[in-house]
């Protein structure tokens, strides 16, 4: 008998109050986490399947990002008249982090609508799809991260121990990705035009966020940069990788946003979790 995920006793009560629903979500998350073997496996497949019939496989991710970074790095270092040894690593990390953050938000819209097939065929904790999604995004990010290592070697960047701060930064970003999927996933399953809206917002946000340009280039407009949440998330990951720490403000904002997003995601997910099977 396989260790089935259909619990021994399944009780569903439609009249459950809000607290009951919250407990159900907690259950769902715990059950989902217990099935990590499944979503780790499925997440890998998601990335691999994309490039299954190409020789390079997922390394295409790395290659296309690498070409983009090299091209833009050379061009913009000329435009901004900056030293390429300083500009290119800055741009590369910014770009990689943005690929992770922006990509995760855009893709989180489809986390349930893409899984509609299996959601309606078998009972799985819905958090399995969320975990699978975040994991596949992390794998894609891992492939892009190779570029940073190459660039660090090329330009002799030695970030020192500060680099360890990138780990909590990545955890914060991944957590927010998960919360995003818990909010946008059900919402986009219901309203099919939201993914388009999100995609355009993300595109605009890319240009508003100091990735191609640096925040130090517009010191007199610091407010404009500081009210942009993406700036803080990019900064807490980029700074450690370049050998700095990121400012206290950056970290506080990111932790604050994570807490707010977490509360929102739990509330949202517990409210609409049961409807996902009907919407997807």
């Amino acid at each position: 008998m396989p260790a089935s995920f259909s619990q021994r006793v399944l009780t569903i009560n439609a009249a459950d109050a809000a607290t009951g629903r919250l407990a159900t979500v907690w259950n769902d998350l715990r059950e989902g986490f217990r099935l990590r073997e499944l979503w780790l496996f499925l997440g890998w497949r998601d990335v691999r399947r994309h490039y299954q019939r190409s020789v390079l496989g997922p390394l295409w991710l790395t290659l296309s990002m690498g070409i983009m970074v090299a091209g833009l790095g050379i061009l913009y270092s000329q435009i901004f008249k900056m030293d390429i040894r300083e500009y290119l690593p800055f741009l590369a990390i910014g770009f990689i982090m943005w690929g992770f953050i922006g990509g995760t938000i855009t893709a989180s819209c489809n986390v349930f609508s893409n899984a509609a097939g299996s959601i309606r065929q078998i009972r799985l904790p819905l958090s399995v799809y969320v975990f699978q999604f975040v994991w596949s995004q992390l794998i894609a990010f891992g492939h892009n991260f190779v570029i940073y290592i190459i660039i660090a070697a090329l330009f002799g960047i030695n970030p020192g121990f500060q680099v360890l701060l990138a780990v909590p930064a990545l955890i914060l970003i991944a957590l927010n990705g998960m919360f995003c999927a818990m909010i946008l996933g059900p919402l986009c399953a219901r309203f099919r035009d939201i993914p388009m809206i999100i995609a355009s917002i993300i595109q605009v946000a890319f240009f508003m966020t100091p990735i191609l340009w640096s925040a130090t280039q517009i010191p007199e407009r610091a407010v404009f940069v500081n009210i942009n949440p993406f700036y803080h998330f990019i900064e807490i990951a980029r700074d450690p990788l370049l050998g700095q720490t990121g400012s206290l403000l950056n970290w506080l904002v990111c932790i604050g946003i994570t807490i707010v997003m977490g509360v929102l995601a739990l509330a949202f997910f517990s409210r609409f979790r049961a409807r996902i099977a009907y919407w997807a």
Binding site: V9, T11, I12, N13, A14, A15, I119, R120, R123
Partner: peptide, 15 residues
């Protein structure tokens, strides 16, 4: 356990 009912309750014992 795929569709959660709009009203009432469901109890399923067993895999």
């Amino acid at each position: 356990g795929i569709y959660e009912p709009t009203a009432g309750s469901v109890k399923v014992e067993g895999d």
